[in-house]
Design a protein around this nucleic acid. Structure first.
Length: 477
RNA sequence: GGCGCGUUAGUCUAGUGGUCAGGACGCCGCCCUCUCAAGGCGGAAUCACGGGUUCGAGUCCCGUACGCGCUACCA
């Protein structure tokens, strides 16, 4: 099995490209096939010069890799369409000599006018075939006048079709189709043509892509046929949409894989989520799958044909699940860049301490970039919650209570369990309700009514900083 | 407009002629609890519509509606 992903070099990997690449990768690994990277850069106007790195980076982040491509080389190099022009010309020449294609001298303006006329008279706009049977002398004259022709494929009518791996039989009548351009006047092949030449020469067995390419398959089928080439298998995946059902675009949320990495989504979660957007393992209640598990389960037949909305809420849930599943030490390392970015960590940190801290925030994060918020009390001094504590301790001697806490903490063994035992005993001795006492402590320790578990938090904050925070409050109360 | 694809709760989906239409996210409620989370339990919510075929249709066929795609010398 040989499968290719053919992104345009836009500088970033689109999530749609990511999902298709993921499906390709799963299929290829499952079948022991080869995954190929090909850069479709025939749209000169749109190309950012060699901006492939961003695309590679996004896919690599997901954990995907290929064995042939511009960056890897391979038996069918080059893997960039802009470097394969001679190939396209060779087969265009073949099509021309066999009579399957012909030169068309119509200008873009003439075609535009023709189309306008047809639309006005309510005809379906399609090429009239004006240059279809030009005489040799006419062609010579046009060439002599300096006109540069395009190459058009001669379309003969009839019903054609293919068996889509996810949708079944798809057919159309080509009598509705005009002769279409395969090589532009600037010598660059059109997508539909270049794709066919490349897929054939690169021995692609399964052509996989998004549903918007379904109708492109028809002209491609015609090209395969005209060249006398066998057709590969085709699989068209569902389209991914925004929450308002519009096509996934940058306007309405993140579109590129790199953006999700920056927001603190885990590649494990992203892969899991993307896999389930348009595919399902069938009868199973299991929601979490690793890349390896997906390799085992994936199949084209279980891909859904209908469009799928990219539901960030579900992604968030999955991400939170994956965060909780990570070993704390692993999570700590992943969280660190986000803490640095937020300015909470500037120099080296003690990884043991960071890991301990991470266990406290692990269940309180949806994304990695939640860490700076949730964990700030372990790095920065909170604003003293003087007023809240006063309100909490209304009617009792607050200063004395805080002092008792300080005294207790000053001598206790510094470990969560011991801190808890000591403080619970103090609570009993003071005769305060658990709610009041521990909320007061939480306010004192963290400056907030919401925080990670109290005793462990106190431990992680450390004796010195705890006593300092208490001292500050005692003098302010 | 033409052609193509699609349509199970708000969302992702299971279902391949006979099920109380299953699961998950989200939402609501309860429990647990030092707060917040997490976790547990429970709840509301779905087969787009109309015709067929059949003893029986979410499942098969036709039509309609709606959505998406293509209709370029874009990919």
């Amino acid at each position: 099995m040989r499968v290719r992903i053919a992104p345009s070099p836009t500088g970033d990997a689109h999530v749609g490209t990511g999902r298709t690449a993921l499906y390709d990768y799963l299929f290829v690994r499952q079948t022991g096939g080869t995954f190929i990277m090909r850069i479709d850069d025939t749209d000169l106007a749109r190309n950012t010069a060699h901006a492939e790195a961003g695309v590679y980076q996004g896919l690599h982040w997901l954990g995907l890799d290929w064995t042939e491509g511009p960056d890897k080389g391979g038996p069918h190099a080059p893997y960039r369409q802009s470097e394969r022009l001679p190939l396209y010309h060779r087969y265009a020449e073949q099509l021309l000599t066999t009579g399957h294609a012909y030169h068309c001298f119509c200008t873009a303006e003439e075609l535009e006018a023709e189309r306008a006329l047809q639309t006005a008279s309510k005809e379906d706009p399609r090429y009239s075939g004006k240059c279809r049977d030009l005489s040799a002398s006419a062609k010579e004259a046009l060439t002599a006048s300096g006109k540069i022709p395009t190459v058009r494929l001669r379309v003969k009518g009839g019903v054609i079709g293919f068996n889509d791996l996810v949708r079944g039989r798809i057919e159309t009548d080509t009598s509705l189709m005009g002769d279409f351009i395969i090589v532009k006047s600037n010598g660059i092949p059109v997508y539909n043509y270049a794709t066919v030449v490349d897929d054939y020469l690169m021995e692609i067995t399964h052509v996989t892509r998004a549903a918007e390419h379904i109708v492109n398959t028809f002209p491609q089928l015609l090209i395969y046929d005209s060249l006398g080439w066998p057709t590969p298998h085709f699989a068209h995946f569902s389209t991914m949409l925004n929450e308002d059902k519009s096509k996934l675009s940058k306007r309405k949320g993140a579109t590129y894989i790199g953006q999700y990495a920056e927001m603190g989504y885990l590649p494990e979660a992203m892969v899991n989520f993307l896999a389930f957007l348009g595919w399902s393992p069938g009868q199973s209640d299991e929601e979490m799958y690793t890349l390896d598990e997906l390799v085992e389960k994936f199949s084209f037949a279980r891909c859904t044909p209908s469009n799928a909305i990219f539901d960030v809420k579900k992604l968030d849930w999955l991400n939170a699940k994956w965060i909780r599943r990570l070993a704390p030490a692993d999570l700590a390392v992943r969280v660190l860049p986000f803490l640095r970015k937020a300015g909470l960590v500037e120099n080296e940190v003690d990884l043991g301490w960071l890991t301990r801290m991470t266990t406290l925030i692990q269940e309180r994060m949806v994304r990695l970039d939640d860490a700076p918020t949730v964990a700030s009390i372990f790095f920065r001094e909170p604003t003293p919650a003087v007023e809240e504590i006063r309100a909490m301790l209304a009617g009792v001697d607050g200063k004395a209570i805080l002092a008792a806490v300080a005294t207790t903490l000053a001598s206790v063994t510094w470990a969560e369990a011991d801190i808890e035992t000591a403080l619970r005993k103090l609570q009993a001795d003071l005769g305060l309700s658990t709610k009041i006492f521990f909320m007061t402590l939480r306010l004192a320790a963290t400056g907030s009514k919401v925080s990670p578990p109290l005793f462990a938090s106190i431990e992680v904050i450390g004796r010195e900083r705890m006593l300092k925070r208490l001292a500050g409050l005692i003098s302010a109360t």
